[in-house]
Write a protein that binds this DNA or RNA. Structure first.
Lengths: 230, 230
DNA sequence: TAGTGGTCTAGACCACTCA
DNA sequence: GAGTGGTCTAGACCACTAT
């Protein structure tokens, strides 16, 4: 007896799509028909189809039926790297050094991103992250002290800003921007590399509900690569 | 009367996690209890919890119960950019130019990635993608002609390799690597920029089932940024 | 307006895994 | 061994939308 599960049905449907039995953009049978065909409850077919829809392989519309997606949306996922883990899984010792920690007026682009009123201040930190004793990444961060006043009284020598924020503000959302820049003197200094080296940059802004928490720019040592999967 | 749905329950549970009512790592009530509490079927609670598990906010184990995730996995998703769409949504005209299209022996790293036997050949293409009349990205690609022999008889002047592959090999998987490099002479030439500029690079290998299809390196014009969300 | 997916229920059995 | 999540079923009603 064949096992009938939503996973096996998903697989079967996927096969019929990949084989071309159901062409791109064409309408596939309704849930009821498929349930009869596979000898299972409609709910089970529904789950399988929902999974395919989540993956962007089919589009479903009430009354319109289910169609194979014209241009399969290719989504890649990746985990936001946590520096300490990144370094330690590579077999090195992680450490960090807080270079600067001042309360001052952020430049306009930062101010608007954190929704800080004109003339307001924010905490500015610069941190160098080390793998063993060589610089691995350089972090420049602004924290909205109105949203996270506790940051002012935390001894940031012991725990990195990075980790503190993850611990204290665990469930937040945000956006991420990747880019490449040439190392200017400040970055080159911090990472102990030459000016002009191509640097991989992650720019990240984080907020909790409507409160803007922090914006950070992370400059990785040259040669860094970020892996992901389709 | 309150609407009871798996979405509303998901939201309610999320709130209890975010508010700290359920601490990080702590065990939360079982499905049956929550079903009683919210006055719905266990199935409904199950769906809500599965959603939270998919998002990486809770971890579920049989007999072990459901626990709030210690280190909320921060996953970012992004859509793999399709060059034509990228350019056209920016309001520019897309075009491309196939600079090179030869069958030759790939260098060892490419050979091993595509699983091509020693001494075997593969199709090598170089394409420049334009936004209006200025270069936008430079693409270097190797295609495994054993897996996709049709590529040899396709007029690649009309349709870009990029699009052809998406159309012909729609349902494949792959991996993606992001990095930054300094433009060498070849890249600088193609993108009409200066040698040494910091270039954002996407490296992508694609396969269908067990057949390795293609590996591609895409060099974006300096200043390019890739946006994503948490 | 009729057809299709979206979702809830109540009950059942199974599979895993912790103690 | 027992408790918890994983999943299937059969039936029902609802919501959207293409025609």
């Amino acid at each position: 007896m064949t096992v009938i599960s939503h996973q096996s049905i998903r697989q079967a449907l996927l096969g019929r799509i990949q084989s071309g039995e159901w062409a791109l953009g064409s309408r596939i049978p309704g849930e009821t028909d498929l349930a009869t065909e596979y000898g299972c409850a409609r709910t089970t077919v529904n789950r399988a189809l929902q999974a395919l829809a989540d993956e962007g392989l089919v589009v479903r519309k009430r009354k319109g039926g289910t169609r194979v997606c014209q241009t399969p949306v290719r989504q890649a996922k990746f985990e936001i790297p946590i520096l300490r883990e990144q370094v330690e899984t590579a077999g090195s010792n992680y450490s960090h050094r807080l270079v600067c920690n001042k309360l001052k007026r952020p430049p306009p682009p930062v101010r608007s991103r954190l929704h800080i009123p004109a003339g307001g201040k924010a905490a500015h930190m610069q941190t160098i992250h080390y793998a063993d004793s060589s610089p691995f990444a350089y972090e420049e961060r602004w924290v909205n002290t109105q949203a996270v006043p506790e940051i002012l009284t935390t001894p940031l020598g012991e725990i990195s800003v990075n980790e503190w924020l993850v611990k204290m503000v665990p469930f937040s959302s945000g956006d991420v921007v990747f880019s490449a820049v040439s190392a200017d003197e400040k970055i080159a200094d911090a990472l102990e590399i030459e000016v002009g080296a191509a640097i991989f940059v992650i720019d990240r802004t984080t907020w909790l509900d409507d409160a803007f928490i922090t914006t950070m720019t992370l400059y990785y040592k040259e040669g860094y690569k970020l892996y992901s999967q389709l």
